Simulated assay, not measured.
Amino acid sequence: MATTTIEETHVSKVFVAADYRTVWEYITDPMNVPECYPNWTTSVAPEKRHYRGVGTRGDEFTMTPHLDEESGVVDFEIDAGSPVERPRSRLFAIDEHHCLLIHLAVRWEGVDDHGWQEHKRETDEDLGRMKRLVEIDS
């Protein structure tokens, strides 16, 4: 079993000026993924037990949400073959009108250093976009 190091993890966070329910509904709807995260996804369509997505390189994947509103757990299992990616996010209410969203990415097997740096940069960029979209809508 391989050990993950701190260099193989990336934590992104955004402070969102919107109430918990508004942020929750927005970030847990897989249909919002292409708008929020255009660095990764161009389209999403519902299927029976998951969602079918298309990435920016034309790659197809399935996306299965694992959600727990009470605990603020927003996990999506992304399966494009092997390995399965499991981006994990946690949403915290700060007060009635503000939330903190924390996202954890773990470097997957086979990604080179340049690809990992790009992944971290694009993740931070997309979380900033999601923040702005939620704040505009609320």
Rank of each mutant, 00 (worst) to 15 (best):
V111F: 07
R88I: 11
V11H: 13
D124T: 08
T41F: 03
T22A: 12
H97T: 12
N39Q: 14
P46D: 12
A80D: 11
K48T: 06
Y20C: 07
T22Y: 03
R121C: 01
A80C: 12
A80Y: 15
M1I: 15
V134Q: 05
I6C: 10
M130S: 09
S138E: 08
T28Y: 02
E35Q: 08
Y51I: 00
E109Y: 05
M63P: 02
E47T: 13
V16T: 01
S43D: 10
E85G: 15
I27C: 03
D113G: 14
S82V: 14
T22L: 10
L91T: 11
R107M: 07
L67N: 10
P38G: 06
D124F: 08
T5Y: 12
P46E: 14
T5R: 12
D19T: 03
P65T: 05
T41G: 05
E8P: 08
E85Q: 14
G58N: 01
G55Y: 06
V44L: 00
L100Y: 01
H103Y: 07
T4H: 13
I78M: 12
P65S: 12
D19F: 02
T56F: 00
E125L: 15
A80R: 15
P34D: 01
I94S: 09
F76V: 00
E135Q: 07
P83H: 04
P83R: 00
Y26S: 05
L100F: 05
T64V: 08
L67P: 09
H97R: 09
E7D: 15
T64M: 09
K48D: 12
Y51N: 00
D126I: 02
K48M: 06
N39D: 14
V33L: 10
E135W: 14
T123E: 01
Q117S: 15
L101N: 02
G58V: 04
L104V: 04
Y37A: 04
T42L: 11
T5I: 11
T123P: 01
H66M: 13
R129E: 02
L100D: 03
Y20T: 08
M63I: 06
E47C: 03
K131M: 11
V33W: 00
T28S: 03
I102D: 07
V106D: 05
V106L: 08
H50F: 09
G81E: 15
V134M: 05
H114R: 15
V11G: 13
P34I: 00
R121A: 06
P83G: 02
H66I: 13
D75P: 02
L101Q: 04
M1R: 14
Y51R: 01
V44M: 04
N39H: 15
R132K: 15
E96K: 12
D59R: 14
N32P: 00
Y20M: 11
T22D: 08
T123W: 03
T123L: 05
V111P: 08
E85M: 08
F76W: 04
P38V: 06
H10Q: 12
E60G: 09
L104I: 02
D79H: 05
P65G: 04
E70A: 05
R21N: 13
G110N: 07
S89Y: 06
R88L: 09
E8D: 13
